[in-house]
């Protein structure tokens, strides 16, 4: 095969690969929308589930999902961004950074079912939080922490060194440089990591089913149990309770991910524009 021909074949394979990925995405979305959309009504969104989800809506599961995500982000963002700041700004590259980085990679590799079990044993049983938004939130935070650390680190590294130098020669402390220049300029990148995390967290079942539980009541306190949309979908489908409601729940789930993504990118864009 001539180099030229090889090039054409390679490009052909890569392009079809890319289109295949896109086609799969559209296929999934299409199936879920076709099967789910007809069952989504205002009442479906605003009513609580009845008869184990055979009838009624999914309001309590929406509340549980949002509540769970907020708690996990409140825990994971400060921890993750803090770790990233420490790794990039306050340490020289060396043994410690390597160990911390290796640790977070390993954490990212832990299967979510194991994390779920860990959360169940530690938070639900040992610490006595029970099946609750708190247990679920902490467990989910552990799961998304590596994503937030890694994306924040990249975002912080992409802020020009010159900004830190300017802060220094104008008499600023390192921390002032971090809070006034590094973090604001890294914010869009950090936000990208947060969006990724929300995407992963919103669809997570294994961790959540063990720690948040499966209660269909609307959680108020962080010690209340609940059922996230993803778990609701899983139970509806697995136990054959109602495929129509399962697909409708899935459609709402996919829609919310899309909306979160679009809205965040819009915010990010605004933010970048405003600073230009």
């Amino acid at each position: 095969m001539t180099p030229r021909r090889a090039e054409h074949v390679a490009i052909g394979l890569m392009v079809s690969g890319a289109f295949l990925a896109l086609a799969i995405l559209f296929f999934i979305i299409a199936v879920i929308m076709i099967k789910g959309l007809p069952h989504i009504t205002a009442r479906f969104l605003l009513d609580n589930p009845m008869d184990m989800g055979r009838a009624g809506g999914i309001f309590s599961t929406i509340v549980s999902t949002v509540y769970l995500l907020v708690v996990s982000l409140v825990i994971a963002i400060p921890l993750g961004v803090g770790t990233a700041i420490y790794l990039t700004e306050y340490t020289e590259e060396g043994k410690i950074t390597k160990i911390v980085r290796f640790g977070t990679e390993c954490l990212a590799g832990v299967p979510s079912i194991i994390l779920g079990l860990f959360g169940f044993i530690l938070f639900v049983i040992k610490l006595g939080f029970g099946w609750s938004v708190l247990s679920g939130g902490i467990s989910l935070a552990i799961m998304i922490l590596p994503v937030i650390i890694r994306t924040s680190e990249e975002a912080i590294k992409s802020v020009p060194q010159a900004f830190r130098d300017v802060n220094e020669v104008l008499g600023g402390s390192k921390w002032q440089g971090v809070t006034r220049l590094v973090l604001p300029n890294a914010a869009p990148g950090i936000l990208t990591g947060v969006i990724l995390s929300v995407g992963r967290g919103i669809g997570e079942t294994a961790v959540v089913i063990f720690t948040l539980g499966t209660s269909l009541r609307t959680p108020f306190s962080i010690f209340d149990s609940g059922r996230s949309m993803a778990v609701h979908f899983y139970i509806l489908a697995r136990e054959g309770i109602s495929m129509d409601n399962a697909y409708a729940t899935a459609a709402v789930l996919v829609f919310s991910i899309l909306i979160i993504n679009i809205f965040s990118y819009y915010l990010m864009h605004k933010f970048v524009e405003a600073r230009r």
Binding site: P160, A162, F163, D165, V166, N167, L170, G171, G172, S173, Q176, R180, L181, N185, R275, R276
Partner: peptide, 22 residues
């Protein structure tokens, strides 16, 4: 410095950065 490093903010905010951090 050799290359001008303006911070990604307004002219005024650039000017008073050194004072604000005090």
């Amino acid at each position: 410095f050799a290359t001008p490093v303006v911070l990604p903010m307004s002219i005024f905010e650039n000017l008073v950065y050194g004072l604000k951090i005090q």
